[in-house]
Computed example of a mutant assay.
Amino acid sequence: MISDGILTERMAAGDQEAFEMLVTRYHGPLLSYASGQLGDRQKAQDMVQETFLRLIRHLRRHGALEHVKAWLYRVLLNLCRDYWKSSAYRSEGLAGEEFPETADDAAGAQEQLEQQETSSEIAASLEALPDVQQHIISLRFFHDMKLQEISEQLDLPLSTVKTHLYSGLRKLKKVMAAQAEPSRESEVYSYGSSVR
């Protein structure tokens, strides 16, 4: 597989095929990330498109990039943040809307339901964490980014990223355990009342 660095060198020289290869490599993950951030797939598509346009402009001005993946995610996150601050976001009233996950035709209905419930539980639990911990956990586990890439994207020291990741995971575990307790108690209660 051709490295990102070589692809950006070729893109900087005007190679259309290299651009298409890079878009193929990162479009899906970036769209998934932006959809999760914005809760609006169409708006996410616009943000991803703008991210790639900015990449082209950057390469024309400055040449190849060493850490393309981290650069793409950082630009996309900044675009999302700018959008959240904009009057367009407030007027469209998108806050709080959720975008439905696309269903995998190969998976059975029961399996899909369980996956959606688990994803919803994790997403709900993540909301209990500070924003920076949410972002780091999401990038690490849902977007498969390395800690160094996250460090570069969020412009934080690697040690800070590690601290946020581990403390966030500890909090997430506690939140999820606390959420599981009431359902266990109701199961025990319903079992006990049916025995009588």
Rank of each mutant, 00 (worst) to 15 (best):
G36W: 03
E97G: 03
H62P: 01
E9P: 00
E92L: 15
E97D: 02
P157W: 04
E50S: 13
L113M: 14
T51G: 04
S151H: 04
A106T: 09
Q110L: 13
N78Y: 06
R41L: 09
A109I: 07
A128E: 13
P130E: 12
E50G: 02
F99K: 04
Y73A: 05
G168R: 01
A177C: 04
K146S: 12
D40E: 05
L30P: 04
A177K: 12
G96K: 11
V161I: 11
V23K: 05
A177T: 14
E98W: 04
S194C: 07
S183M: 13
A12P: 03
K146M: 10
L147P: 05
R61E: 15
V75H: 05
S167W: 01
H27S: 09
M21P: 00
W84M: 07
L65H: 05
S167Y: 06
L65I: 12
E9G: 05
L79E: 11
K146E: 15
S151F: 05
L53S: 13
G28M: 11
A34V: 10
P157T: 03
Y191R: 13
D40H: 07
R196M: 11
E127P: 00
Q153P: 00
G96C: 08
H67P: 00
I137Q: 00
L169F: 01
M21E: 15
I122A: 06
P100F: 01
R54Y: 02
S193H: 12
D131A: 09
T24S: 14
Q42W: 00
M145R: 05
F142S: 15
R60N: 14
C80F: 02
Q16P: 03
S159P: 02
L139F: 06
L77I: 00
E20W: 01
L72S: 07
E181N: 03
E121T: 02
P130D: 11
V175C: 08
S119A: 15
L94T: 02
T118L: 14
P157K: 05
G14H: 06
A124L: 13
K69S: 09
L76T: 08
L94P: 02
Y89W: 15
R61T: 13
H135D: 10
L154S: 03
K85A: 14
A13D: 12
K171M: 10
P100M: 03
A180L: 14
V188H: 09
T118G: 00
V48F: 05
E50C: 00
L65M: 09
H27K: 14
V75Y: 05
L76E: 10
R25C: 09
S186N: 07
R90K: 14
D82F: 01
T118E: 12
T24P: 00
R140F: 05
A95S: 09
R81A: 06
D131Q: 10
Y26R: 04
D155K: 07
Q115E: 15
A44P: 10
